[in-house]
């Protein structure tokens, strides 16, 4: 069981992380990620990240930094202008994995208005698993796994921070 205080800190983190992603504030979002960050969107339900099967996205911290640099160039056409987004987060369950470290499950529905081309609304429902760590009084993430309901596809272009 986590304390009410811990739950508040975790939820605050999730909401802030979602807002920075929604608003495509790439560098501020990146600042929430630890050096051992694993940012992952598997392609199949039940996939193991090390089983040699391809993922939709599978970033270690270095590749994530490259991704953020690419978005920050301003000429990443797929996000010029950035998608307009709004994430609804619910069903937050928190487990302690070590002192000051949490495994957090949530359900997320992301609405994306794709203004770069067709001007369509795309909906991305997902189960999300975060691993968070309290460091120097601040909550950070060292893992974010996004289990898209439709990961086996077809999947539209997904060039924003999910």
């Amino acid at each position: 069981m986590v304390t009410i205080e811990e739950r508040l800190r975790v939820e605050e983190f999730l909401f802030k992380e979602a807002r920075l992603a929604d608003e495509s504030r790439y560098s501020e979002w990146e600042a929430l990620a630890e050096d051992d960050m694993h940012y992952w969107v598997p392609a199949e339900a039940g996939q193991d990240p090390d089983d040699g099967r391809i993922s939709i996205l599978n970033d270690n911290r270095t590749r994530l930094a490259t991704r953020i640099r690419q978005l920050n160039t301003g000429v990443r056409h797929a996000q010029v202008p950035p998608s307009r987004m709004c994430r609804i987060i619910s069903n937050v369950e928190i487990e302690t994995i070590a002192d000051g470290e949490y495994f957090v499950r949530s359900n997320v529905i992301l609405y994306e208005y794709r203004i770069q081309a067709d001007k369509e609304m795309e909906v991305w429902p997902a189960r999300v698993e975060h691993k968070l760590r309290m460091r120097d009084g601040e909550m950070k993430m060292f893992s974010k796994h996004i289990l898209l309901l439709n990961s086996e596809g077809p999947v539209r272009g997904l060039s924003f921070i999910i």
Binding site: Q70, A78, A117, G157, S159
Partner: peptide, 15 residues
């Protein structure tokens, strides 16, 4: 693929 450094940009140009 959908999140790729390359194809995500090709796909928006194609659309």
């Amino acid at each position: 693929g959908p999140t790729a450094f390359l194809l995500a940009d090709d796909s928006v140009i194609a659309e």
